[in-house]
Design a protein around this nucleic acid. Structure first.
Lengths: 337, 337
DNA sequence: ATGATAATAGAAAACGTTTTCTATGGCTGT
DNA sequence: ACAGCCATAGAAAACGTTTTCTATTATCAT
């Protein structure tokens, strides 16, 4: 069955489509009360709703904001997506969520598709930005679309010169380390994310500086790399456990790492936090239900999602938003003497 | 800057826009190799991508599938969303995710907006279907849009006569109860969801039938209602604990209920599963990390998402898909003697 | 009265595609 | 040599809107 269009409404109300259009867009143009009433009644009766494709075509922009994430089933991105969809909705936008499944090619592809949809803007959290060849391709695509007014906001810009909304990763690494130092720890290890990923690098740098400032001797022996997963954390912790004898605490670059690392520690019959304290960055729901519940630096994901939308909708030319974090104290850190 | 359109391509290649259109849609229409090559080169050079709004307008349908969920940050829906977006993508569709924030009015609103976008279909998991007045309104909207070919698939149809993809809730309730019975339990309590919600009712019915069949006397004393949340499970369990003295196991209608209930039990100094066994329905990630890890009937959420997309894309007139579940054995159930 | 302005309304062009319809030249079979 | 067909191509209409431009009254100040 054919959809009802503005023509049907105009016919039923006995006016021109121009008048109908003016009424539904309630543009500042005088329309007699009588016609307005007739049109409104006709719309009601026909259950007319404007065809958005046609509106977009004419208006030259769409009310959609694209969000590209690594994995929408990951609660980390779920929270971000929630912030994005809710804020978008508040501002009269809709969000198109794309999940790359951790394949950067997909991020490129989705970016292209969203561009075809002429979306208002794209929020990038596909995590492909740390793949070098991909980064180049994306840069090109970005530059090209920029000319046509496509807005981009990255949630982990990996050092690229694009608008972003994120936490200060350096500060994050520094703060969790300082937290431990303040509680009497001196032999503090750090399990990082991948070596070449910007986020990891910054967090590790923060750790190192905190150690240095406290007058503790820094050693690469105390650092182990992982891939931000539980398994990675587990393995990295094993390495640490075998190399470092006197450690009293471990910083993990994210919650997953620490959850994995804790199971490695427990396997050895050690107690947390009595024998080894843990702190991480992220504050996923899992952190709360871990055993013991994790003390962690919370990243306001919901807020980041909202701010990213704001960044896209507001018409500023350059955006760099750093959001605040705070340490959530639970039971994985022991205060020494 | 103005977007490059099919006209620019046609001009550069020195052909008509008709020819360009035929090539990009590679429709079965003979085009000389030479022109095809020229056009392809022009497209490449201009980085031309068709304007999808225009395509939709002309083709009368969009390549978007709408998904309305209660809360996208809830991992339960995150998994569904993942299935939806990935399957949609495989089939050349894009998914528009809307999160109602548990407000049924929003479901109605999103439904309307998606309709305005003339999406291919809508997957309903907004959870508003159990609100009576809302259900009526939605029915009307559904009936209206149905005439225009909008496909709907519900993930919890609440007894409505619409296409659906879901588990057999009755069987689910029955199976978890039988699991307990097989392991020697006789005094089994059940913490249900809300009284008037279809899903709850079915699961409870399954429990009752399993009890009856085993020749165990059924009593409403053994049943307590909650609202599917942790807090609800906690409260309901308190009630049970005070009323029922000899219970050895509790079935929960979902994971959250059981996680809440377990904390109530632990508070009384009882051990799980030594003193009381627990089983639930859902198998969220949290179930795995609960203390102890939960034995639970897993709902294949990812698969449900995929099947829902299939249901929308395939052109059947009536759809009723029941997906399989299986019990994931962990450590919350004790086998008696 | 008269020209100017304001209020109201519709016709028509435009947005960027797809598709139907028409046109042309060459080939085929008789 | 001619009707019919095939391969190739473009013109133009259509999709459902918004917006610009033009037209008609009514009102107002002079």
């Amino acid at each position: 069955m054919k959809n009802t269009s503005i023509v049907d409404v105009a016919k039923l109300a006995g006016v021109s489509i121009t008048t109908v259009s003016r009424i539904i867009n309630n543009v500042s143009y005088p329309v007699s009360d009588e016609k307005r009433k007739r049109v409104l009644k006709a719309i009601e009766k026909l259950h007319y709703r404007p065809n958005i494709a046609a509106q977009h075509l004419k208006k030259r922009f769409s009310d959609i904001i694209g969000l590209i994430v690594r994995d929408i089933s990951d609660p980390y991105f779920g929270d971000i997506a929630k912030g994005v969809t809710e804020r978008a909705s508040q501002l009269g936008y809709l969000s198109l969520v794309c999940s790359t499944g951790r394949n950067p090619e997909n991020e490129l592809r989705y970016h292209d598709i969203l561009w075809q949809h002429r979306v208002k803007g794209i929020i990038l959290a596909g995590g492909g930005l740390d793949q070098l060849d991909y980064k180049q391709k994306l840069s090109k695509q970005l530059a090209r679309h920029d000319k046509y007014g496509l807005k981009i906001v990255a949630l982990a810009p990996q050092g690229m010169e694009i608008p972003y909304v994120m936490i200060d990763n350096y500060e994050a690494g520094k703060r969790i380390t300082e937290y431990l130092i303040q509680r009497g720890h001196r032999n503090i290890c750090f399990i990082s994310g991948p070596q070449k990923v910007y986020t990891s690098i910054e967090r590790l740098k923060g750790y190192k500086d905190a150690i240095d400032r406290a007058g503790i001797e820094f050693s690469m022996e105390y650092v182990s790399y992982s891939d931000f997963t539980r398994k990675g954390g587990y393995d990295a912790c094993k390495v640490l456990l075998s190399k470092v004898k006197n450690m009293t605490a471990i910083c993990g670059a994210n919650d997953n790492i620490v959850i994995g690392a804790m199971s490695a520690v427990k396997e050895q019959g050690l107690n947390i936090p009595e024998d080894i304290s843990f702190i991480s960055i992220g504050d996923l729901t899992e952190a709360m239900y871990a055993d013991p519940p994790l003390t962690t630096l919370s990243i306001p994901r919901y807020e980041i999602g909202m701010l990213a939308v704001d960044a896209i909708v507001e018409d500023k030319d350059s955006i760099a938003v750093i959001v605040d974090t705070k340490i959530i104290e639970r039971r994985s850190v022991k205060t020494l003497n």
